[in-house]
Amino acid sequence: MDLIGHYSTADEGARLTRSAHGRLEFLRTRELLTRVLPDRSRVLDVGGGTGVHARWLAADGHAVHVVDAVPGHVAEAARLPGVTAAVADARALPAGDGAYDAVLLLGPLYHLLAAADRRAALTEALRVLRPGGVLAAAGVSRYCSLLQAGSLGRLDAAMEPSVAEVVATGRYDGHVGFMPTHWHTADELAAEVAAAGALDVAVFGVEGPAWPALDVVADHAPLLDAAVRAARVVERDPLLINASAHLLAVGTR
């Protein structure tokens, strides 16, 4: 299934609330973005889906414009208070140079399988940033399915070659669900963002090392605070950063 077909049938609006590790991803992404974004900034949320992050960003006083390739997502995001939205491709943004204080790429990079396409999206994001503006770009960790399938008892002999392939190359074939995508290491993500022209690039582990444990218990609520704290402690630790399911690169123009 292609990208638009997949997201036209998936309930993207509930993705960060329906699972324990999704809730952790949401909380930590919000925490990290709140830390790095300028106050009351003009934010372009590229690939922003139905506006899960745009909703709270607008409530915090930011002027948020969502662009997404899926028309249904754009229609939902446009209904949020303080949010505007339009259909667009991350590689060709409908905005002038320096139009935004912050640009978020929380979804597009892993859907762009070719390095040249990821470079194009990052270059566009930096183009529409004002000098000194903040870029935040997310990637999926190459170790995500290893940790998930291993923790849930789903890693078997049939799956093992696919897991080894994504760890070695970043090519994910859909073996634990979702669709074929490109998954990063922290070093690879930092290098791609810097090569596009971003300055002072730092990469953070989003969920930290405790996220797989949340999905193996019936009631994850008592574990969530500790998981957030664990993620915060090692968010820049080079020995543990890739144990997060998602990575967030932050840089400036």
Rank of each mutant, 00 (worst) to 15 (best):
R171F: 11
R232W: 14
A245G: 13
T84W: 04
L80C: 10
D117M: 03
A168Q: 14
A210M: 14
P94K: 09
L239W: 13
G72D: 11
L146V: 14
L239S: 14
L122N: 00
A249P: 04
G251E: 04
S162F: 10
H175G: 09
L109S: 01
V176L: 14
G177E: 08
V206H: 03
Y7F: 14
R171T: 14
A243E: 14
V103I: 04
E192S: 04
G197H: 03
V83A: 01
G49I: 02
A210R: 10
L189R: 01
R229I: 12
F178I: 12
G177R: 02
R142Y: 09
V46H: 04
L135T: 00
V206D: 04
L112P: 01
R42F: 10
S41L: 08
T84N: 06
L129M: 09
A20D: 11
V228I: 15
H62N: 02
G98N: 09
L57V: 02
F204Q: 01
H62L: 02
G98K: 07
W211L: 07
E207F: 05
H21Y: 15
V83R: 03
L109G: 07
D173R: 11
A77C: 11
L93E: 09
V206N: 00
A85V: 02
L189H: 02
W211T: 02
R142I: 02
V203F: 06
V70D: 10
L113G: 12
R42H: 13
A202V: 14
E192I: 01
G177A: 12
V140R: 00
V203M: 05
P71T: 04
C144F: 15
S8A: 12
A191M: 10
D173A: 13
R171E: 15
D60I: 11
G133L: 06
L112T: 01
L223F: 12
G139K: 07
R171I: 10
S162C: 11
G170M: 02
L3W: 14
G22D: 11
E124D: 04
A194V: 09
P180N: 05
V206W: 01
A75H: 08
L104S: 00
D89G: 03
P209T: 07
R119V: 13
D156S: 08
E165V: 10
A116P: 14
A58S: 09
R40P: 08
R127S: 05
G48A: 05
T252E: 12
A120W: 10
E235C: 08
G47N: 03
A58C: 08
G139T: 05
V36R: 03
Y110P: 00
A77Q: 03
E192K: 05
G96E: 15
D219M: 05
A85T: 04
L126G: 00
H111F: 11
R40K: 11
L239C: 09
E124K: 02
A115Q: 13
V201N: 04
V217G: 07
L109N: 02
V83G: 01
R15L: 12
H182Y: 15
